[in-house]
Design a protein around this nucleic acid. Structure first.
Lengths: 362, 362
DNA sequence: ATGAAAGCGCTAACAA
DNA sequence: TTGTTAGCGCTTTCAT
């Protein structure tokens, strides 16, 4: 920077001002400085800058694992938002482990991030409590921890599961299986709860034998395959399946196919959550679409508003609704969609499917 | 830090030493300092640290888009490697745009990253030339730019495509369609080249009408659907399809299904690249498996070796081989696999498929 | 084994 | 509009 000042014939300070777009620099001086900066290939030292200024143009994002599509989508959205505002994104991984979450957050604090977006592990949050005392803006995503009192952006898992299940019930199904995960976090809990509530509200007694919880993650296709096989081998009768996650569908389809059950004639299937391939499956999947990218966008919005001091005070909780996308897999015809809110009207089965709803017998 | 020094009854300097594990601190002093650090919840200031020390424990990763599975996988692998070594990952996005790549790299340099892993855009690299003069370690991934003289870790796209195509030819196919993308970067180029080379080597004349390049990205299922439809509507006869990316399969399958073509009886299909769902598709997909996570791991390895000064001098080029995984979609039976190297022996069609290779007619 | 002092590259008061 | 002067919180000589 001294070189730049010398070459531009002004003081360090003036260079700093020119670079930071401060108002009190003459247009020609600024132009000259910028020209020299360009010519010398000068690169400002972000660390020194944040040290001196007491704030950094960085944001931390802590998620479980970049490979999981939901998180990848959020990374993409947050990254984009940071880019647009000239912020740099620091990434932390938890692998769904509290200790690692703690470490990741600590490291990001060391880097003096201006704010933090966090998908909390939810098996413990004590280590996050001290953070509240700080001025550091934090936005939770995907899973909320109410006790922390931070902004939150997530998806209405319960209503989504409820709507999907209700849809099946509306089509006449009474024995509906649940292919899911042990409800450790709120995501699995809420989806299971929504599923059960729909049954209950329609006078269908809960049937533990129809619920299989052998899936280990939202993308555990192999687990879903195995779980479905167990369900089929149990001998329980069922005319429909609700999938904890849409991404499990290929595993479930395969199990059904191998057992000679057709979708949707023998077993109707609905899923919940993002799955870009849903319309391309052998039987297009009826599922509750989740606007995951919007979660990232909204979270970044909230965060930057806090960072820029435009918002302060009580936490905002943004819960985005899913949307039921009806396709062939539930036997109610494809292409039609309706909001998945609790009060959504059920759709009458539509006419002839644009995509043939056939299946391969195993 | 001053607080810590005061509470521990020593100088700033001693605290610094204790924290950095320097040898010249008595065990008891160190213990006392660490205890105080813990009690006070002191968090060292990474920016000040790198400013003073002249080096930072951060690494930059620049990819096109976190949402694309390949990049998500690399992010995950690199993140993990950074974590293990106590480094923090800064993320940059290019969206396959040179100007954005330039910006991302500049920003990461401002943050004084100790090294850089970069999936270069490949439509221009002039902006990266100045980087060579710096001492900054850089490792390219996925796509190489030889002129830059940096370490590189990627996958042998050409041999993979060659092996997959050769496999089809070995099964008797002569009219093989190519569903792919306009070869802008080396990935598409190499795959297409490998495909063509296999044809040529077996005396099959290149047939432009069988190559459709309407796919826009490795995951453009919709584009693949449309491209396959065009291919089908063109009236060209073909008994097999090579997919530029395995992830396109659901789109291709759907087009074939709707056209009443069975896989593999009417059209055999092989793909290239990672696709976790390959074994779960209605017809399990024969494809060339790519060890993408290893690319990230190896790249991080190389980078840290450079950072720690364990390696210097001429660039290392690591090109990982793919592996042909034979399933039902090519009609040669599932479950068998062989290395996809150029000289790989072709497999004789295996016995009865464990997964039924049937399809749904549209 | 510990302390004192200088300075990393920058920004932010304050003067001029 | 510009220059001068202090630090930001830490590491690193150099002394002790």
């Amino acid at each position: 920077m001294a070189d730049v000042a010398r070459a531009a014939g002004c003081s360090l300070n003036t260079v700093s001002r020119a670079l930071n777009g401060k108002p009190d620099v003459s247009a020609e001086t600024r132009a000259r400085v910028l020209e020299v900066v360009e010519r010398l290939g000068y690169i400002p030292h972000a660390n020194a800058r944040s040290l001196a200024a007491g704030r950094s143009r960085t944001v931390g994002l802590v998620i479980a694992d970049a490979v999981v599509p939901v998180y990848a989508t959020i990374i993409g959205a947050v990254q984009e938002a940071c880019d647009r505002r000239g912020y740099t994104l620091l990434l932390g991984n938890t692998q769904e482990d509290v200790a690692r979450e703690d470490r990741a957050v600590r490291v990001l604090r060391e880097h003096m991030v201006a704010g933090l977006i966090l998908a909390p592990v939810q098996t413990g949050y004590e280590h996050l409590l001290p953070l509240r005392a700080l001025e550091l803006p934090v936005v939770l995503v995907v899973r909320d921890v109410a006790a922390l009192g931070w902004d939150y952006v997530g998806i209405d898992n319960a209503s989504g599961a409820y709507a999907a299940t209700k849809h099946l019930i509306g089509l006449g199904h009474r024995r509906i299986g649940y292919v899911g995960a042990v409800p450790r976090g709120s995501t699995a809990q809420d989806r299971q709860a929504g599923f059960r509530r729909a049954l209950k509200e329609h006078g269908i007694a809960p049937q533990a034998a129809l619920e299989t919880l052998g899936v280990r993650s939202i993308a555990d296709v192999a687990g879903a395959y195995a779980a479905t096989n167990r369900l089929l081998e149990s001998g329980e009768r069922m005319s429909a399946l609700f999938l904890y996650s849409s991404q499990l569908a290929p595993g479930v389809y395969r199990a059904l196919r191998e057992a000679g059950r057709r979708v949707p004639e023998d077993v109707a299937v609905v899923g919940q959550g993002e799955f870009p391939l849903a319309p391309y499956l052998e039987v297009p999947l009826t599922h509750v679409h989740h606007p995951v990218r919007d979660v990232g966008i909204r979270a970044a919005d909230l965060l930057f508003r806090r960072i820029q001091g435009e918002r302060r005070g009580s936490p905002e909780k943004v819960i985005l609704p899913g949307e039921l996308v009806v396709a062939a897999s539930c036997g109610a015809g494809p292409g039609v969609s309706a909001p998945a809110g609790g009060g959504a009207e059920l759709l009458a089965p539509a006419g002839a499917p644009a995509l043939e709803a056939t299946s391969a017998a195993g």
